[in-house]
Simulated scan of single mutants.
Amino acid sequence: MGADEIHIRPRTRGCVDEEALMRIGIQIPRFTGAGGPEHIGPAFARTAREADQAGLSSLWVMDHFFQIEYVGAPEEPMLEGYSALSYAAAVTERISLGTLVTGVVYRHPGALLKTVTTLDVLSGGRAWLGIGAAWFEGEARGLGLPFPPTAERFERLEETLQIAHRMWSDDESPYEGGHYRLERPLNSPAAVSRPHPPILIGGGGEKKTLRFVAKYADACNLFAGPELAHKLDVLRGHCADEGRPYEDIEKTAIVMVDRESSVDQVVDNLGRLAELGVDHAICTGATDEEGAPAFLGRVAEQAAPIVPAGR
């Protein structure tokens, strides 16, 4: 299936067709506060349950094997993303679940799509596919994972996105790409989400990443920084080029929350992001600390009247 054969259908749940209010998510960036390894599971389960009960829209973990340098030392505890999300699915009922984001070269596309489908089935339709071109060469080299040059990683990303649409459709015909060959992309059981688990692409690359968002994805993920408005304008242009309504893309942004943040400060920041058209704020930073889900629940309550621009 070539890129020109992909037709993205309007979503019926979980993404662009929900009530047009800003959604609040939580990303858990580290697992150091619980103590030794035997305490990580109970602590993570508690955080997931509290986030669910607080009414947050989404729960995310990083898809890394080593801790990233922006957060801590590589030796810090880091859970494998999909195992962690499966565990979270079992202790929650409503919150959606995803990685922010999977490095495309870390898993074969067929196995990755089967993994996300399994999470979606077992969670009752709450999985996202968060994906990007990968960047952390150190962890790849450390564990012996493939890490080809940038151009090839983007080629593999586009093929994986094409395979995702193939496996989440009724088409089992062979896929022949430059890097991947699937003789029969069968995916049974089918995902519970309709038409499929939402696809989120992370990154702000203007020539390829945002073009892939317009062509293949349901959502983008960008940093809530000074370039956000410009990146969204670039995405708007790519949507026009692809004949895709810009409004169909869910705009998610990573929002830093530190220990000193107040509810009012975070809500004010969300209001500014909503003016740019951000639909879904994914909060990170001090979000691994005790009480963070309840704090963000208060943020979500206070931010409930905010309607993102364009909705």
Rank of each mutant, 00 (worst) to 15 (best):
M1G: 14
G2C: 02
G2T: 07
A3G: 06
D4P: 02
I6W: 01
I6D: 01
R9K: 13
R13W: 13
G14R: 10
E19K: 12
L21H: 09
L21W: 01
I26N: 05
P29Y: 15
G35N: 09
G36M: 03
H39E: 09
P42I: 06
A43F: 13
R46W: 08
R49P: 09
E50W: 04
E50R: 14
E50N: 10
A51S: 13
Q53T: 11
S58D: 07
L59N: 05
H64T: 05
F66A: 15
Q67C: 13
E69P: 03
A73W: 07
A73T: 11
A73K: 12
M78A: 10
L79A: 15
G81V: 09
Y82Q: 01
L85P: 01
A88H: 04
A88K: 04
A90F: 00
E93W: 02
R94H: 11
R94T: 05
L97N: 01
L97M: 02
L97R: 04
L97W: 03
T99P: 07
L100C: 14
G103Q: 11
V105S: 10
V105W: 08
G110F: 01
G110N: 06
A111S: 13
L113C: 04
K114L: 11
K114F: 12
L122H: 15
S123G: 00
R126A: 08
A127R: 15
L129Q: 10
G132S: 14
E137D: 08
G142Y: 15
L145I: 13
L145Y: 11
P146F: 08
P148Y: 08
E152K: 07
R156I: 05
R156V: 05
E158I: 12
Q162L: 07
I163K: 08
A164C: 12
A164Y: 15
R166V: 10
D170Q: 07
P174M: 13
Y175T: 07
G178A: 15
G178I: 02
H179E: 14
H179V: 15
R181K: 06
R181T: 14
P185T: 04
P185E: 10
N187E: 13
P189T: 12
P195E: 05
P197D: 06
G202Q: 06
G202W: 03
G202K: 14
G203M: 07
G203V: 08
E206M: 06
R211D: 11
D218K: 00
A219V: 06
F223Y: 11
G225E: 09
E227A: 13
L232A: 00
V234C: 10
L235M: 10
R236E: 08
C239R: 00
D241K: 11
E242Q: 09
R244E: 12
R244Y: 06
E247Q: 13
D248H: 02
I249L: 08
V257T: 02
V257D: 03
D258I: 00
S262F: 06
S262E: 08
V263D: 05
V263L: 05
D264Y: 02
V266D: 03
N269R: 14
R272G: 08
L273F: 14
E275C: 02
E275K: 12
L276E: 07
H280K: 12
A281E: 05
C283H: 04
T284N: 07
T287D: 00
D288L: 03
E290N: 13
G291T: 08
A292Y: 02
P293F: 04
L296K: 15
R298G: 04
V299C: 04
V299Q: 03
A300R: 09
A300M: 05
A303P: 05
V307S: 05
V307W: 01
P308Q: 06
P308M: 13
